[in-house]
């Protein structure tokens, strides 16, 4: 996108500069308005739109057998996570997930609007009181990922962060067994 944008920008700037040279052009409404003004943007935009939809569709949560479900509940200013695989298990500020497995995070809020965002795992999804939104994330490698709340939520917003820990198989089993806090 950056390359495409730069090319278009450069093209427009060249046209602008050329307007200042000495010339005797007849006014050519068709060229400027129909070809450059209408056809050119429509062609570029259609291509971009199709690409965006294709990528967006791939990022959507699909039903699958081995999807792990967790729940993220935002409040001012902490996240509480609970796990479908272990009844009653909750963690505060740290979300544990298995690596290499798709995870559906059911995002909601108990007070104001927050947004669940782990930049390296997926895009943002808002936590809205009364609604539950599902975000699909997947960590390819075990490790620690930083997460932030990305919707302004008043005074504690600056420091409103959390961590996602992706475990390998063995660690994930011991987490489920309650051996990791």
């Amino acid at each position: 996108m950056l390359v495409g944008a730069s090319v278009i920008f450069g093209f427009v700037m060249v046209l602008l500069v050329l307007a200042f040279r000495k010339h005797d052009d007849a006014p050519r409404e068709r060229l400027w308005i129909v070809k450059l003004g209408l056809v050119f943007p429509i062609a570029v935009l259609l291509a971009l739109l199709a690409y965006g939809l294709f990528v967006g569709e791939r990022l959507l949560p699909r039903q699958g057998a081995d999807v792990v479900s967790v729940k993220a509940e935002g409040r001012m200013w902490a996240w509480r996570f609970s796990y479908a695989d272990v009844e009653g298990r909750t963690t505060q500020g740290v979300l544990h997930i298995p690596a290499g497995v798709p995870v559906d995070v059911a995002v909601t809020s108990v007070d104001v609007v927050h947004s669940f965002w782990v930049p390296r795992l997926a895009g943002k999804l808002d936590a809205i009181p009364g609604h539950v939104n599902v975000l699909r994330i997947e960590a390819d490698e075990p490790g620690t990922y930083h997460g932030r709340s990305a919707e302004f939520s008043g005074e504690g917003y600056d420091q409103f962060a959390f961590t996602v820990v992706a475990h390998d198989d063995a660690e994930w089993r011991s987490f489920l067994a309650g051996e990791i806090e």
Partner: peptide, 21 residues
């Protein structure tokens, strides 16, 4: 949202065309 760039494009190129004219 992307479509809205089309009428904007028409105006931009009409203005550049005016400069050429």
């Amino acid at each position: 949202s992307t479509l809205v760039a089309v009428p904007t494009g028409v105006q931009i190129f009409a203005w550049i065309g005016t400069m050429w004219k």
